[in-house]
Design a binder for these strands. Structure first.
Lengths: 346, 346
DNA sequence: CAAATTCTGATTTACGTACCTCAGAATTTC
DNA sequence: GAAATTCTGAGGTACGTAAATCAGAATTTG
């Protein structure tokens, strides 16, 4: 039978209240008594029953999710997943509030985080923007004892407790490796091949990191692949379409395109309208309705994906654990980079 | 505030006991009274607090995991993960017992399942062997009301409640697609290329399915790739090594190898000892210490993986949900096919 | 019709922990 | 030395649900 506080009290020869004070670090216990209780705890191998504790505390974890009000499919899906978590909140003893902020706007994010700081919830999750002022608020949140996880986009070298997202450098490297291998052969002649890169903005850390990983692998392993200057489409369908169409017109020999941001709707439209001698090899990020269809149709060759549902659930699990001062199962919380070809679409 | 049984009792004008009888389907309530209680439940939107219910029942979920006593790295890892779950069992209110059975032995599996049937646990998970007698015991378990999930290898068209494992046909297709694309070009000349397939046993369903997916994609999308007769290495390092070495000696022009079973240690040794004009392209299953090293060294080009930890945790979550008659979050429980290149090794 | 038997509903206790209130002892203050 | 103030410990109640026990009414049986 699992030992309980009653067993501890009996063994240590004290009352329940004393055991409780020791367990919860409350004052009012002589050090000798404390010692006896601690001995009993270790000798019995007592572990607190979290379910019972939470019931007694009638605890609900109040979490705040700060999400950019982007209208691309990925962010919409992320919103959807958080709303799903809100729907499950009564069963999971959580009380999740969603705060929308304008995208790519450090000031707005800082303001939102400051509002959070004022209400002191049990935890915050947010899509980070890599800026010093954001790091500064993060530090104040940590000082205030508010657990904090970054979602999708990280804030390295900050005081965040956890990052629920993929390793974007590894993602870029994977894309580069796939691009190089897929190009090797028919498209990669003696004189090399040209690839274009479509990003949202180089101001966003995840996009920068993906490009970094991609470029590194191409430079080292596929030196005869030439990368054109990055197209920054601001994750906007229209702008992305124009930029890609323009690039395809100007460089008839583009053999591959790596879309590392969320401008895939525009990219796909541009590709469908194009009529070059042969279709370029396309690797994109995020499996959405449009990239899925494009993958099935052969317009896109591979999609690297991060599962927003897993990210949200992981963030919640980690916030709960941090709020309770519990360790996290690192293996369970690592967000993986999914690679989808048209053959393993779920 | 979340409604409780007390609120229901108050609204319906009855006692707690009556509410409890209605909620738990116990007899002794007149249908008019039952109706009043049910109305109150729906109007309040009551949902049972599982934590409190489990506490009151002082419930522990007793699960049995039946695992083949294979000595390949994947199965060892699977064992490890189940033992991890056993270690966490007190915190998770589970009581998990591991039963080892000899591998590839339907009779032993049936015997183990029958033993399980006798003790009626709250759920069973097992690595299925696709045989009629196994299906028959599965049916009896279902009739006895024991929730049942298959792990790693499925038992389709049976009464199992859930399958915690990957879609092996999709995995085979993915391998075929990667093989075809990676080969296209330097290795795939005018007259085509030859690939070898190393399996454990064609008697095991997951191996059959992987081969099926692989062959289908190759036949349709890469008609000039020729697949040699399957090598059945029984997942044995020594036998696998001899068979691969033999095949490489006999067919100097092998351009690719697909290892769809667990005989990777032998395969890797054979590859390291081989000294052909050029290294074949190798795609294998399951990320273990040896395949990871081979991937990093460039001996293997891609590894398809199923995360044993996720499978075990998913199986437990599903068994719990089934034991409580709760729905499962399908999106969360889908086990994904990880594709690892040397660039995205975790 | 009294006694036995079912129905139906109410009360009460338990699960393991948190936390509030209270009592007695030890210590300090005037 | 009496009163006030800490310490230290005990007891009890609450969280939301399950389930055992109890009590009264309705029904059946001889």
């Amino acid at each position: 039978m699992k030992p309980t506080v009653h067993d501890i009290a009996k063994i240590a020869g004290v009352s329940l209240a004393t055991v409780d004070r020791v367990l919860n670090g409350r004052p009012g216990v002589r050090s000798v008594t404390r010692g006896k209780v601690e001995d009993a705890i270790t000798s019995l191998g007592y572990v607190r029953d979290l379910a019972a504790a939470n019931l007694a505390k009638s605890r609900t974890y109040s979490f705040v999710f700060i999400l950019p009000a982007n209208d691309n499919s990925f962010m919409i899906g992320l919103h959807e997943e958080v709303r799903g978590a809100v729907a499950r909140s009564s069963a999971e003893r959580t009380d999740i509030r969603i705060v929308d902020v304008p995208p790519f706007d450090p000031g707005a994010l800082v303001a939102a985080l400051e509002a959070v700081l004022a209400e002191k919830p049990a935890g915050v999750a947010f899509v980070a923007i890599d800026a010093p002022e954001v790091r500064a608020v993060a530090r104040r949140l940590t000082e205030a004892g508010v657990p904090m996880v970054t979602l999708v986009s990280d804030l390295p070298d900050s005081s965040r407790d956890h990052y629920a997202g993929i390793d974007n450098i590894a993602a870029g490297r994977t894309a580069g490796s796939l691009m190089g291998r897929f190009l090797s052969g028919p498209l990669l002649g003696e004189r090399g091949a040209t690839v274009a890169v479509l990003a949202g903005s180089m101001l966003v850390r995840d996009h920068r990191e993906r490009l970094e990983g991609f470029s590194t692998v191409i430079a080292h392993a596929y030196p005869n692949v030439h990368i054109l200057p990055v197209l920054e489409g601001r994750d906007d369908p229209g702008l992305s379409e124009t930029m890609v169409a323009e690039a395809l017109r100007r460089n008839a020999d583009i053999a591959g395109i790596y879309s590392l941001g969320a401008g895939n709707r525009g990219l796909i439209r541009a590709l469908q309208k194009a009529h070059g001698p042969r279709r370029p090899l396309v690797i994109a990020h995020e499996l959405t309705a449009s990239t899925r269809a494009a993958l099935a149709d052969g317009v896109i060759d591979a999609v690297l994906n991060q599962d927003a549902g897993h990210e949200v659930r992981s963030a919640i699990r980690v916030l709960k654990a941090k709020a309770d001062g519990l360790p996290v199962l690192a293996a369970q919380e690592r967000i993986r980079i999914d690679i989808f070809l048209k053959d393993n679409l779920p």
